[in-house]
Design a protein around this nucleic acid. Structure first.
Length: 833
RNA sequence: GCCGAGGUGACGGAAUUGGUAGACGUACGAGACUUAAAAUCUCGAGACCGUAAGGUCGUGUGGGUUCGAUUCCCACCCUCGGCACCA
């Protein structure tokens, strides 16, 4: 018998599978389809680290199981290759990002292929490929033509010394990551996609998909649908504390119009547009200006977060009037109010809102209770005890509305002051511009006469030109702006002089529709116009076959951006009649990150990255696969530990040995004539394992599936003889986890056909229930003994058997038996006193 | 701060979703094999008291519900993910 030589085996079978095109999906097949999807990787220069393949292996196990269950499986992969790291590398080295991408992709592909993930490589796509981004650009123009892409002034991070725009990630504590200099937020015209138009459907349609509740909850909270009222407050000029003429109106959004009588001040965001109109009336304008400038420096998290005291400046010389009771109330600006949520202005009710309550401390602002808290345990807030009461209840101190319930008062008070009941969303429109090189050029042309003109379809793709310098320009424009020959074009409409848009797209663009691209990958390269191709029956037939994605696994960190963006993109395409389903992904799950040994995130800068190359070389791909699935719950983050890996390798070596033991004993012949009898407990264990592995895979509980395979193998080793058919069943269950090992042993046992094309084993219910059960005997909830018996014994029998146990009896001495609680087939608890 | 997830032996984790806490694996200890080491195989092991039989305690902390709580409820502490230009 020769030993388990992973190098020989793995190379051999990878070649065979590739030659037989075993994992390529068929666009037309009588089998039921299954579309498995993982988030396609960003091919970074550091190469694959051991964290990357975790989700690929997990979905691979599911895909392999589905094939064995008779499905036509599509499990594709590609490259999400636009992005900052490659661009920054290009800025540093001057090497073209396309070359860097090519190099990185090649390395990633080699590394992924050595793990034998059953990807359909014939459908490989790359977002940076002009034949791919031609479609991305075409879809952008569709958004533009439908009025969902527009330009708007938005703040960007600006480094004052580098004089370039920065990504949020490049700003650390308000300073530039590159030079350490100060940054500020500066307004710039940006392309936007109107995702908020789809906010309601993105929220509501979560009901139709199978996502874990934590993902639905995060998306719903991100969309932040809330029902409330818009209420107008008049602003008056005040001279020497005397009310003069009305100068403006400010509309606030509130979810709690029932607390309107408790408003003690108004807060505007420091950027609120009304400030410009009234600044001549503000007596402390200088102080206000200073505060506005400080707010510019802060990030949103700094503004809304932190335990620090909430800051603000009162606008002196003006006051607002509470429309409910005509009270004169002060107006403040404060950075805890954001300009792009609601109306950028709030009515503050410190008695019933946590942030408002925090804000008044030290500022001498009053608090008026308008919800009756005396009926609760809390006690009245005015006594200074505890937090503000943010719940609903009966109104007090609210004029004619006192005594009314919050819910009714919301409507009535809004009506009373002439307000409007509205629905708002926290979700903001999608900033779609980047002033960067390595992204899809936004395909529009700016003409002095015709305005913004889309690039005609025949001129797509708008390819990225060669540039010398990849860094953004010091005017904040993309490096593309410096290429005069590329920028200056004729207007497609009037043929007059015009300039190309120089912004590029974020890399969420290409990843918003890549799962569609896999279905039609061969069509992407066609020279036919997309507007003819996409709606054609040829493509629609494929999309109808494959969509929606049946199971999409990805990182929890993509829940609110990528996952939401692509759902939006898909719904838009659906509205255009281009895709057949309302939702792109029928089911979504997520995996936990693999962290470095210390529990930190793996990163090049920390120098704690574990490369799979070395692991595969010394332990083999199957060992790595088994370890990554065994190391802990798939959905949770977990630290890498090379020491533990040996257990997975040992497991596979023992599988190998048992295989050879069986073969040497000559079971092969016996199996053909008749199945050998096996011990009943082993048969029961086998069927239990079939059930457990099958169910665990569906629940992503790969760790316990492997654990049960290990338990079965341990039993095989203890048993004097194990039948070939039993062992073969074990191999089939192992095949999705360790495809090379399973295939090699399978072939050694005399099979010609691949084990991965075998049917998935089924278990017999009878074999499971034939086994005896252990009944736990407790006295007052403490375990005092146990006994074995057959399944299905009556409560009386079990109770009597328990009371007869000597280990139980001794605890009953001098006590009175009050109750005997029996849990069928499991436990008896004797209650005594 | 807000939203989401989590906290169990030396370590990764398991526990049929309210019913024997610690499966499986790593590391560790003892033994077998070996001239020896490695590898492999067998056995042991939550903590404390006890020679043992056995007992007490034990799932981040404090309280509650229950015959019975890692699991349910309340309060608190800590760790991780996201917060819109990293992907």
């Amino acid at each position: 018998m020769h030993g388990y030589d992973h190098k020989r085996i793995e190379k051999k079978w990878q070649k065979v599978w590739q030659q037989q095109r075993q994992y390529e999906a068929k666009d037309a097949s009588p089998k039921k389809k299954f579309y498995a999807l993982i988030e396609f990787p960003y091919p970074s220069g550091e190469g694959l680290h051991v964290g990357h393949p975790r989700p690929y292996i997990g979905m691979d196990i599911i895909a392999r199981k589905r094939r064995m269950e008779g499905y036509n499986v599509l499990y594709p992969i590609g490259w999400d290759a636009f992005g900052l790291p490659t661009e920054n590398y290009a800025v540093k080295t001057g090497i073209h990002p396309a070359l860097v991408t090519k190099r990185n992709t090649k390395n990633f592909k080699r590394q992924i292929q050595m793990l034998a993930i059953s990807f359909d490589w014939s459908r490989e796509i790359n977002t940076t490929d002009p034949s791919y981004y031609k479609w991305t650009q075409w879809m952008f123009l569709l958004f533009f033509k439908k009025g969902l892409a527009y330009k708007k002034k938005m703040p960007i991070n600006w480094c004052l010394s580098c004089r370039i725009g920065l990504a949020n990630e490049e700003v650390v504590d308000g300073t530039c990551e590159r030079c350490g200099g100060e940054t500020e937020r500066r307004e710039k015209e940006q392309w936007m996609l109107a995702i908020t138009k789809y906010a309601d459907r993105l929220d509501k349609d979560l009901d139709m998909v199978d996502y874990p509740s934590r993902i639905k909850a995060q998306q719903r909270n991100w969309i932040g649908k809330s029902n409330g009222s818009l209420i107008k407050f008049s602003i008056f000029n005040f001279q020497f504390s005397k009310k003069e003429e009305k100068i403006e109106e400010v509309e606030v959004f509130t979810t709690r119009p029932d607390t309107l009588f408790g408003v003690t001040y108004l807060v505007l965001s420091p950027e609120h547009p009304v400030l410009k109109n009234i600044e001549s009336r503000i007596s402390n304008l200088e102080e206000v200006r200073k505060y506005q400038n400080e707010a510019k420096r802060k990030t949103e998290i700094e503004r809304t977060g932190g335990e620090k005291e909430k800051t603000g400046v009162e606008l002196k010389g003006i006051k607002a009037i509470n429309p409910a009771n005509q009270d004169e109330i002060p107006i403040w600006i404060a950075d805890y109010v954001l300009s792009d949520y609601g109306t950028g202005a709030i009515m503050a009710v410190p008695a019933h809102d946590v942030r408002d309550f925090q804000f008044i401390s030290g500022k001498g602002l009053p608090l008026i209770e308008v919800i009756d808290t005396t009926t609760f345990k809390l006690g009245p807030i005015s006594t200074g005890k505890g937090w503000p009461y943010t719940g609903t209840g009966k109104l007090i101190n609210s004029g004619e509305f006192s005594g009314m319930d919050s819910e009714e008062a919301k409507k009535k008070i809004t009506e009373f002051v002439g307000g409007k009941i509205v629905t708002t969303y926290k979700l903001r429109d999608w900033v779609f511009s980047r002033q960067r090189y390595w992204g899809e050029p936004i395909p529009v042309i700016h003409c002095e006469r015709c305005g913004t003109v889309p690039v005609p379809e025949k001129d797509l793709p708008v390819k990225l030109p060669e540039v010398k310098n990849y860094a953004p320009t010091d005017t904040g424009e993309s490096p593309l702006a410096a290429i005069e020959s590329w920028v200056n074009v004729k207007c497609p409409k009037c043929k007059g002089p015009a300039r190309r848009e120089t912004d590029t797209m974020p890399n969420w663009a290409g990843s918003s529709w890549y799962y569609i691209a896999y279905c039609i990958s061969e069509n992407l390269k066609s020279q036919l116009p997309i507007s003819k191709q996409f709606p054609s029956s040829k493509i629609q037939k494929k999309l109808k076959h494959w969509l929606p994605v049946d199971w999409y696994n990805g990182g929890m960190e993509h829940t609110t951006l990528h996952l939401l963006y692509s759902r939006f993109w898909h719904k838009f395409l659906y509205d255009c009649g281009l895709v057949p389903t309302l939702e792109p992904y029928a089911k979504r799950t997520s995996h936990g990150l693999i962290l470095a040994e210390g529990g930190e995130k793996m990163s090049k800068s920390k120098g704690n990255v574990v490369n799979p190359d070395a692991v595969v070389k010394s332990y083999g791909a199957d060992s790595l696969r088994v370890y990554e699935m065994f190391m802990g719950p798939f959905e949770q983050a977990i630290s890498w530990n090379t020491d533990s890996l040996i257990g997975s390798r040992r497991f596979l070596e023992r599988v190998w040995k048992v295989g050879f033991r069986i073969k040497d004993l000559g079971f092969k012949k016996k199996e053909i004539s008749s199945p050998e009898p096996q011990s009943a407990p082993l048969t029961a264990l086998l069927h239990h394992t079939i059930k457990k592995v099958g169910e665990d895979i569906e629940l992503l509980k790969f760790n316990t599936a492997l654990s049960s395979l290990m338990i079965l193998l341990n039993a095989f080793e203890r048993e004097a003889s194990v039948s070939l058919s039993m062992y073969k069943t074990f191999l089939k269950l192992l095949a999705p986890f360790a495809p090379h090992m399973a295939e090699e042993v399978w072939a050694n046992l005399g099979s010609r056909k691949s084990i991965h094309l075998e049917p998935w084993p089924a278990y017999e219910e009878k074999a499971l229930t034939d086994t005896p059960v252990t009944i736990i005997a407790q006295v007052n909830g403490k375990t005092r003994g146990s006994f074995e018996t057959s399944r299905g014994r009556s409560k009386e029998e079990l109770g009597a058997a328990t009371l007869a146990l000597p280990s139980v009896k001794k605890w009953l001495d001098g006590k009175e038996v009050r109750d005997v609680i029996v849990v069928q087939d499991r436990l008896v608890n004797v209650v005594v006193s």
